[in-house]
């Protein structure tokens, strides 16, 4: 059996070169592969293309949590549906990087999901009605099909995907947790190399086949999150309480 389990996050990202494209979900800290993000920061590669649903600044210190936005200084190009938090000036925090040459391609959550699906499935693109008459249609081919207007959206096929799973078996079968599944299954399918950090790695057979969400064929490397790593249950619970102490977060995240 080919070994997919890596001993460290640094080894798991060791071959990622400058200029690589990487899909990383970031819809809340526990749904972000934070340990792999940290390893990529240590590696210091540059000129990356990041594909992420939400590119938002963290409200925590870097020791507490990392979102995909922690890679900002290493990016050449960003494809996302959300830049920043409206209450905190939306995209203002990326402006200095845009002035220095960062390209930002805005899309919508649904369009991004369908483009990743197209990439995964080997399709040449998707005709999507979302975005007709908006900034999303700029520079893209449009076509009328059965009387309705569509925009040609190109597939996304990232070099790598960083995934966080609740549980992985040694064959790479994955189970997620709660709403932190988000768009990770299609990111894992679309990427050429999928790297997973898992709260728990178990033997093959310990996950009920009926419960597997991402089958192991889509997973190349797995690293277990250590006690002191990002995204453990204990650490995530502490973050909830920390959110309660941050006024802007309290207003946004609790009723």
């Amino acid at each position: 059996m080919k070994n997919k389990v890596f001993a460290s996050f640094d080894e798991a990202v060791a071959d990622i070169p400058d200029g690589a494209s990487i899909a990383i979900e970031s819809w809340g800290a526990p749904g972000t592969a934070q340990n792999l993000v940290a390893a990529l920061r240590r590696k210091g590669v540059k000129g990356l293309t990041l594909i992420t649903h939400n590119f938002i600044p963290t409200l925590f210190s870097e020791e507490e949590a990392l979102f995909s936005s922690a890679l900002l200084p290493q990016l050449k190009r960003l494809i996302t549906a959300v830049v920043g938090i409206p209450q905190l000036g939306a995209g203002a925090f990326v402006k200095e990087y845009v002035e220095k040459g960062l390209e930002v391609e805005l899309t919508s959550h649904g369009v991004l999901a369908s483009r990743l699906y197209a990439g995964a499935a080997g399709l040449g693109g998707i005709y999507n009605p979302v975005g007709v008459g908006t900034i999303l249609e700029e520079g893209k081919e449009k076509r009328v099909i059965d009387g309705k207007e569509y925009i040609l959206e190109k597939p996304i096929r990232p070099d790598y995907a960083f995934i966080i799973a609740q549980k992985a078996d040694k064959l790479g079968n994955l189970v997620y947790r709660g709403t932190f599944r988000v768009n990770q299954p299609v990111m894992a399918m679309a990427a050429k190399v999928t790297i997973v950090e898992a709260n728990e790695i178990v033997e093959a057979g310990e996950i009920d086949p009926e419960h597997v969400v991402t089958p192991g064929i889509f997973v190349d490397r797995i690293v277990e999150i250590p006690q002191e790593g990002y995204g453990t249950a204990k650490r995530s619970k502490e973050l909830v309480y920390r959110l309660g102490e941050i006024e802007i977060a309290r207003k946004m995240l609790f009723r």
């Binding site: 990326v94 919508s108 649904g110």
Partner: peptide
């Protein structure tokens, strides 16, 4: 007027779909 002055999210998908 600046595209980075707001967030698209899933609003366009909801409005169309």
């Amino acid at each position: 007027t600046d595209a980075l002055g707001g967030t698209i999210g899933g609003g366009m998908d909801l409005a169309v779909g």
